[in-house]
Design a binder for these strands. Structure first.
Lengths: 254, 254
DNA sequence: TTTAATTTTTGATGTGGGTCAAATGAGATC
DNA sequence: GATCTCATTTGACCCACATCAAAAATTAAA
C-alpha cells in the first residue's frame, strides 16, 4: 500500500542471484557470472507476499514467471462448487507459472502459504535474453522438462500407490527439497494444512491425519501439528521401494 | 533390416513439414515458410517403427525428440517386478521424449502400438536453431508448457474422479485429438489394449472392460473390440462436468 | 479471558473398485 | 481346418479408503 511504510523496507535490498544461496538450484545454474548479471537485471523486485495472498489467478494474462525466494506457495484450481484441488507446493528456488506459457493465460491459482518473497521474471524479456544466452535457453528447457518429469512421477504415484505410500513419498520429497536448500532433512515445519496435503495426494484429510498418527505409532515420525520429525528415514524410504519404476533418476543439478 | 527391401520404400519420400497436414498442430506452428525450411533440414528421416518396437528405453542417452507422424506410441515405465505403468499415449503431431531434456537421459520406454512413422529431431541441433529463430524457441517452450498442463489435468483427473469419469475423459481426449487431425470424432479404433488403458487411468483392466459394456448399455457407446463409436457425445461430455476446474482452457492453437 | 471459528483427531459405517477365478472370444501358427 | 496363445468379458468376494459424525485441540477475535 504505502511506498514508505514504517516496517523495515525490503525494497532497498538488492538481491543479486550471484549472492543468492539458491543459485545452483535455480535458473542461473550453469550460467557464467557475466550472464548471471544480465539475468539479474531483468528480475523485478516485489514486496513480500503475505499468507493467503495470490500471485495469480486462472484466466489472468500471463506476463511473468515467479521463482520462490523464501516461503512457500501452493498452486490449485477451484471447482464451480468452490472446493480446491491442490496441484503442487513450491519451495525456494522453484518456479511457478510454467503451465501458462502454453496459451498466455494462467490456469490455476498461486497462493502464499506463508510470507513469501519471489523473484518476478517478465517472460517476454526472459525469452529475448534466452535467445542470446545459450546456457539460459538450455536451463529454461531443463526446468520445464524437469517439471514434466516431476508430474509424471506424481501420476505414477497416484496410479500405483496406497495412501501410506503417497504420504511417505510426499514427506520424502519435502525432506529432500529442504535438505538441498540447506535445511534439515529430518526436522521441519509443513506450511500446508492436512486438507491441502490430502487434496494434493488424492486422499481425504481424515486419511492424512490417521496416517500421521500411524507413522508416529510405528516410530517413523514424530508429529506435533505442523512440526514433523523423521525418526527413521530408512524405514520411510523402504515404504515406497515397491511400486517404483526401475530407472527413476530425478536427480537435480548440484 | 535390408536397406533395399521389396516393400514400397519409404526412404525416398521426402516428407516436408510444409506439405504435412500436421503442420498447424506440430512444431512448425507459427513459423514462416523460410524458417520451416530451416527446421525441415535438421529432421532425420527414419524407417517406420513396427508394432512393439521401441523408440527409446530408460537410461538411454537422450539425443533426439520424436514427433509422431502416423501411428501411435505409448510411453511407460517398468517395475523391477516387470509390470508396466503407462504414462501416456501419443498420436500424430505429438512429441515424445520431452522429459529427457532434464538430465540427458530417457526416463521411460516409448513403444509403437502400431506401425508408426516418426520425425526425429536431434536435440542439440534443434537447440542451436531455436536460438536463431525466436518463433521456434517460443513454440518449443509452448510445447513443453502444454505437456505440463496436460499432465496437471491428468493429476487432477486421477485425484478427483471416479472410474467412469476417467474413462469418459480418456475417450473424449482421444476423440478430440483424432478430430483435430481430420479423423472422425465419434468413430475410431483404439490402438492400445484394455490393460494399457487401465494402467494409464489407474484402473484394473477388468474395470475398464466393465465400464465399456456399461457405457454401451447406456447407449453412449458402441464398442466392438478396439472399434469405438460414440453414440451420444453430449452425454459422454456431461459425465465429467462435475469435478472440473472453473478455468480449464486446454485449447490447442489452430 | 471468553467466545467463536477453524483445524485436526478419532470413531463408526458404507462402497467403489481391486483381486481372484473362470469362461469366452480372436488371432496366430501349423 | 485344429490347436495354442493371448486379450477380453463376466461373476463373486473383499478391503482400503471415503464419508458421515462428533469430540478435541488450536487459532483468532472480541
Amino acid at each position: 500500500m504505502s511506498a514508505n511504510s514504517k516496517v523495515v523496507s525490503l525494497d532497498g535490498i538488492k538481491v543479486a542471484c550471484s549472492g543468492c544461496s539458491l543459485t545452483t538450484l535455480c535458473l542461473p545454474f550453469g550460467l557464467d557470472s557475466e550472464d548471471v548479471e544480465r539475468l539479474e537485471r531483468i528480475i523485478k523486485r516485489n514486496r513480500p507476499v503475505h499468507r493467503g495472498q495470490l500471485l495469480f489467478s486462472p484466466g489472468e494474462q500471463f506476463r511473468s514467471l515467479y521463482v520462490i525466494k523464501t516461503g512457500a506457495v501452493k498452486t490449485f484450481t477451484q471447482t464451480p462448487a468452490g472446493d480446491e484441488h491442490v496441484i503442487g507446493f513450491h519451495l525456494p528456488g522453484e518456479m511457478v507459472g510454467l503451465d501458462a506459457i502454453q496459451n498466455d493465460h494462467h490456469g490455476c491459482f498461486a497462493k502464499a502459504l506463508e510470507t513469501t518473497a519471489v523473484c518476478e521474471l517478465p517472460f517476454d524479456t526472459l525469452e529475448h535474453l534466452s535467445a542470446t544466452i545459450p546456457s539460459l535457453q538450455h536451463q529454461m528447457l531443463r526446468l520445464l522438462s524437469r517439471e514434466i518429469s516431476v508430474e509424471a512421477n506424481m501420476i505414477s504415484l497416484l496410479n500405483n500407490s496406497t495412501a501410506e505410500e503417497r504420504l511417505a513419498s510426499f514427506l520424502l520429497s519435502i525432506s529432500d527439497r529442504f535438505s538441498r536448500r540447506g535445511f534439515s532433512a529430518v526436522d521441519f515445519f509443513l506450511a500446508m494444512s492436512r486438507q491441502d496435503i490430502g487434496s494434493y495426494l488424492g486422499l481425504a484429510l481424515e486419511t492424512v491425519s490417521r496416517l500421521f498418527t500411524r507413522l508416529q505409532d510405528h516410530g517413523i515420525l514424530k508429529v506435533d501439528r505442523k512440526h514433523v520429525q523423521i525418526k527413521d528415514l530408512d524405514k520411510l524410504r523402504s515404504m515406497l521401494k515397491h511400486h517404483l519404476p526401475c530407472h527413476s533418476t530425478l536427480d537435480q543439478p548440484s
